[in-house]
Design a protein around this nucleic acid. Structure first.
Lengths: 223, 223
DNA sequence: TGTACATCAGTGAACGCGCGTTCACTGATGTAC
DNA sequence: TGTACATCAGTGAACGCGCGTTCACTGATGTAC
């Protein structure tokens, strides 16, 4: 990828005067999709809308995406990549303290759902099949791998006999967090009312769950 | 509601010869919406599609629904009513044995998501705001009330000091179950692969969670 | 450094299509007497 | 029991609109020599 004029998208809004070549249309279309999804949901925009938002003719997007689905799949893939990065950073290999890192991980998940509802929609609700694009699947699996790694460290704290499978623990954590994010933690209109912040609801759930696994807050100070 | 020819919808398919009056078009449109949502997702059908499926002219639906959103909201409302009924039946007031009833409740939730993906989509993913229709909100709240009632009975088993709020427990149960259903338990293409049945994943999660609350399987035989 | 050429990325006009919605209408049903 | 009338539920034609997609094209950029 290269262009001579530097990144000259519209940082916060549609169209603007520009020369014959856009310079960075692919990125602009992705950004348009994010804006439009955030406004009206993943079903609420068209290929032509995205072109209009980016200030190009309706035929221009075809130079970069086969169709609308390919555009949305690309948004989902980028979303998973950002998501992985956010989770990885929050988890920080469980350092300096495992329980605190685990708490940060959950909060990062909820943060992402709230602050990036458009990515979140594209990733989990747009009906994009993971099979359409190997890179999409890989990005999705990389995100889950962060949760799985965290679950492994948690499980390793338990006595060797009676350890639950780390995969199962990871799936439990994912499901609980995803459930809270989907029902209560969204940054858009689909959110339901809740008598407490979603972060607190999640933290309480995780404390109870971990206690059920035999892990108490005091038992985790080591590495 | 009354008609002289008896219920003469199309029980399993579109159109069919009929007289000038359909007889039961409202029901037929709801059924059309369910079919079409199941096929192509909540965004994948149009008002005209529904009319075509029911075998009437595109203007006919306007006698029964203001627009497509009102039709979908009606589907969601009916979905919540069926959902409430299924949960209520599974829970059965916690009889004869509380833990078994609780397990049935979770399974009923997952069953519903799997067997009625169209209703489930309309209820949770179609972007219908609960504020559009008081009956829709009431139906949604009635469904949650079943979970809440179950949580209350569970919490009542615990020693009075240190009981968690039943509302919180209900929200945890709802979130976990909804998360599993959304990610792994769908009856349609959006499902992700899982190395075990969703029911087992949920049951294991609930056992761990309840243990974390101090409730052990043996402690619940009374009422 | 300049020039010719190939390639790339966007244009704009055009198309067929199906959608949402309105409208005056009409066939069927229900009801008052 | 019959008849006149009101109401209801669906018709079908029409409309304007925006979408997805194709096409020959053209302006801009990159590159070989």
């Amino acid at each position: 990828m290269r262009w001579t004029k530097g990144d000259r998208d519209n940082p916060a809004g549609p169209a603007g005067p520009r020369g014959y070549h856009h310079g960075n249309l692919k990125e602009a279309l992705v950004r348009a999709a994010l804006e439009l999804i955030a406004e009206k949901g993943p079903a609420g925009f068209t290929f032509a809308d995205a072109a209009r938002w980016a200030g190009v003719s309706p035929a221009a997007p075809y130079r970069h995406f086969r169709d609308r689905d390919e555009l949305i799949a690309d948004v989902a893939r980028r979303g998973f990549e950002l998501f992985s990065a956010a989770l990885t950073k929050a988890w920080n290999e469980g350092r300096p303290e495992l329980m605190a890192a685990f708490d940060r991980l959950g909060r990062a998940y909820l943060d992402f759902a709230r602050q990036q509802p458009a990515y979140y929609s594209a990733m989990f609700e747009a009906g994009v099949s993971l099979d359409t694009d190997p890179q999409l699947r890989a990005a999705s699996e990389a995100a889950f791998a962060v949760l799985r790694g965290a679950a492994e460290k948690l499980v390793a704290l338990m006595p060797a006999q009676g350890r639950p499978p780390a995969l199962m623990v990871a799936l439990h954590v994912w499901s609980m967090t995803h459930g809270i994010a989907s029902l209560f933690g969204r940054g858009d209109a689909a959110r339901r009312a809740l008598p407490m912040p979603p972060e607190e609801l999640l933290e309480a759930a995780m404390l109870i769950y971990l206690r059920g696994l035999g892990l108490t807050p005091g038992s985790t100070s080591g590495r």
